[in-house]
Amino acid sequence: MEITHDTLVAFSKSWGLFYLIAFAIGVAIYTFWPSNRRRFHRAKHSILDQDDKPWR
C-alpha cells in the first residue's frame, strides 16, 4: 500500500483521536481509583516532613 498524505491524514484524524481519548480515560481511572487515595494523601503530606537526611 502506498502511503500518501491522505493516508496519514485519515490515520491521524481517526486513530489519533481514539488513542488520546483512551489515554484520557486511563488517566481518569488511575486518578480516581479508590485504593490510590491513601497513596496520594501520603505523597502530598510527606514532602512537608523533615528532609535533612536520606532514609536508610
Partner: peptide, 27 residues
C-alpha cells in the same frame, strides 16, 4: 509543586488535580 507547598507549610490543594493537569499538559 514542591517549593510552594513547602514554603507555605501546607500540602498541595488537590493531588488528584495535579495528576490530571500533568497528563493534560503532556498530551
Amino acid at each position: 509543586y514542591y517549593y510552594l507547598p513547602k514554603r507555605a507549610g501546607r500540602p498541595i490543594f488537590s493531588y488528584r488535580l495535579s495528576i490530571l493537569s500533568f497528563w493534560g499538559i503532556t498530551f
